[in-house]
Amino acid sequence: MTRPLRLGVNIDHVATLRNARGSAYPDPLRAALLAEAAGADGITAHLREDRRHIRDADMAALKAGLGIPLNFEMAPTEEMGRIALATAPHACCLVPEKRQEVTTEGGLDVVADQARLTDFVAMLSETGIRVSMFIGHDARQIEASAAIGAAVVELHTGHYCDLHYAGKFAERDAELARLAEGARLAARLGLEVHAGHGLTFETVAPIAALPEIRELNIGHFLISEAVFIGLEAAIGEMRRRMELARG
C-alpha cells in the first residue's frame, strides 16, 4: 500500500513581501493559517541569520497560532540552536546558509562537520524535536546523516528543477534517478525521507512518485502562484498533482 505524501508549505516569501515595504502586512501567520485551512500538513519557516524574511517574532507567532506542525528551517549555529530550543517546534531542518546567496544553493555538508553536527542534533533531539538534514543525494551525506542521529533527510531538488526549466531533459532525468537512488538508501538506513526546493506544478509529479518520500516542502512557487489564483487554489492544485503522481 502506498504511503500518504504530506505537503509542507513554506511561508518565507510572504515575509519577504512584507519586509519590502517595512510594513506589518502581509502577515506570515495569516498565510500559514490559510495554508492550514487549505490542507497543508505542516508549515515551514526559515529564520535566516540576517532576518531577510522571517523574523524572531514570526517564529513565536507561528508556534503559538498553528494547529499543524511547525518546521523550523535554520543554520546549525549557536544562536539558532538557542532560538529553536525556546520555540520548541515539531521539527528543525538544518540547512547551509551563506549571507550572499539568494536562496539555499545546495545541501549541508554533513561529512565535513560530522562531530559538531552530532552534538547539535543531540541537543535538539533530546527535547523531542525531530531533526532533518537538508542534503544532496550523495551517499556519503546520507550515511553521515544517519550516523549523527538525524531522524529525517530532506533531499535538495533544486538542481533537478533547474535542469527541467533549462530544457536539459536527459540531464534532468539522470538527476531524478540519482535522487531516487538517494531516497532508497536513506529509507534503508531508517531515515524518513523528505524532498524540496524549486518544485512547481510542472516538476512535482516525478518527485512525488518516489515511494520512499514521505513529505514535500514547497514555498516560493506556491506563494508566487497565489498572486494569480490565491493560496487555497495553489495548494489544492499542488496536492491534486501530488496525489495523482502517488497513484
Results as ranks from 00 to 15, higher is better:
Asn217Trp: 12
Ala180Asn: 10
Glu225Cys: 15
Gly196Arg: 07
Tyr160Val: 02
Leu179Tyr: 00
Thr44Phe: 04
Asp173Glu: 12
Leu47Ser: 00
Asp12Tyr: 03
Gly230Asn: 13
Pro76Gly: 14
Glu154Gln: 13
Glu192Ala: 15
Ala151Trp: 04
Glu171Gly: 08
Ile142Ser: 06
Met1Thr: 07
Val111Gly: 02
Gly167Gln: 11
Ala40Gly: 01
Arg140Asp: 12
Gly106Ala: 12
His194Ala: 02
Met1Cys: 10
Thr77Lys: 09
Leu189Ala: 00
Glu232Asp: 13
Leu66Tyr: 02
Ser23Lys: 14
Tyr25His: 06
His46Val: 04
Ile83Asp: 00
Thr157Gly: 00
Asp41Ile: 07
Arg246Lys: 12
Arg18Trp: 04
Arg6Met: 14
Ala84Glu: 01
Leu176Phe: 09
Ala35Asn: 05
Pro69Phe: 10
Glu126His: 09
Ala86Asp: 11
Ala234Phe: 01
Ala233Lys: 15
Gly198Thr: 12
Ala31Leu: 04
Arg30Ser: 10
Gly42Leu: 13
Gly196Lys: 07
Gly149Cys: 12
Gly182Asn: 15
Gly65Leu: 02
Gly182Asp: 10
Arg246Cys: 11
Ala177Lys: 10
Val204Met: 11
Gly65His: 03
Gly236Trp: 02
Leu176Gly: 02
Thr104Ile: 12
Arg99Phe: 06
Asp138Cys: 04
His156Gly: 07
Ile68Asn: 04
Leu231Arg: 15
Ala91Ile: 01
His90Thr: 00
Gly149His: 12
Glu97Arg: 13
Thr77Met: 08
Gly22Thr: 03
Asn10Ser: 08
Gly106Lys: 10
Pro96Val: 10
Arg188Ile: 10
Pro28Asp: 12
Ala84Pro: 06
Ala170Gln: 11
Leu222His: 05
Ala24Tyr: 11
His156Arg: 03
Ala61Asp: 15
Phe221Trp: 15
Gly8Phe: 06
His220Tyr: 14
Ala166Pro: 04
Glu78Ile: 14
Ile148Trp: 00
Arg116His: 10
Gly196Val: 09
Val193Leu: 13
Ala144Gly: 04
Met1Val: 10
Val152Gly: 03
Glu49Gln: 13
Leu47Val: 02
Cys92Val: 14
Val9Asn: 01
Ile68Trp: 11
Ser23Trp: 14
Pro76Thr: 10
Ile142Glu: 07
Leu47Phe: 07
Ala166Arg: 15
Val121Gln: 05
Ala84Tyr: 01
Asp119Val: 01
Asp162Pro: 05
Gly65Lys: 06
Ile235Pro: 01
Lys63Phe: 06
Val14Tyr: 00
Glu79Tyr: 12
Thr127Gln: 14
His90Cys: 04
His159Asn: 07
